[in-house]
Structures are given as C-alpha cells and as structure tokens.
C-alpha cells in the first residue's frame, strides 16, 4: 500500500547510522551483533524477544537495515513507555516488505 512508514526519514537516518556502526555483513546484522545493542536499552529480555520477533520479518535470524529500524523504533517507543505490540501494525511494516 501507499501508507507512510511510521519510521520518519530523520529517525531512519539515525537508525541507519547505528546499523552501519555495527558492521553489517552483506547488508545484514546477525542476532549476535544486535542482541547487546538491544540489551543496552535495559528493557526486560522478554520484551526484547518480542521486539526481535516483530522485527525479523523473514525469520532468518538476521536483520537488514529496514528490519533493524523496526527493532530500534520499537525499543525507543518502549523506553518512552509505550507498550510493544503483540503483532506488527501495518504502518510499521517497512514499505520494502509489503
């Protein structure tokens, strides 16, 4: 659809720079690379597990830059006190994955 992605351009640039700083291989970050970053948020591990479930859209155990942005978006919102949804709302699905 043509629904705007909830991750705005400015926020996407920030998430992309974090993504690049973690040393993606072939445009992907493995769970081992992403896990310590999410743990840094100090959010409960069960919440972070759900963030991963919602972000790894193709369930390959790795995040590309759009999936990583979904993960970071959910973590930042959770830190602001918003609950992490049980399933990914359509506006949060990256346009490249629809």
């Amino acid at each position: 659809g043509d629904m705007p992605w909830v991750v705005k351009a400015e926020e996407k640039m920030k998430f992309d720079s974090i993504f690049e700083s973690l040393g993606p291989v072939g445009g992907m970050l493995t769970g081992d690379r992403v896990k310590p970053v999410l743990l840094n948020s100090k959010l409960p591990v069960d919440i972070l597990g759900r963030v991963w479930e919602l972000s790894d859209l193709d369930r390959d155990g790795m995040l590309d830059r759009d999936e990583f942005s979904v993960a970071m978006y959910l973590v930042y919102r959770a830190l602001e006190g918003e609950p992490v949804p049980m399933s990914l709302p359509p506006p949060l699905v990256p346009p490249s994955k629809r």
Partner: peptide, 13 residues
C-alpha cells in the same frame, strides 16, 4: 513456527 528440533532464530529465546 520453528522447525521441529531446530533452534530458534530469536537470540533472546
């Protein structure tokens, strides 16, 4: 959801 006997793709599980 995960392959039987296979490991999870979720690093937090």
């Amino acid at each position: 959801q995960y392959p039987a006997g296979g490991s999870s793709t979720n690093p937090f599980l």
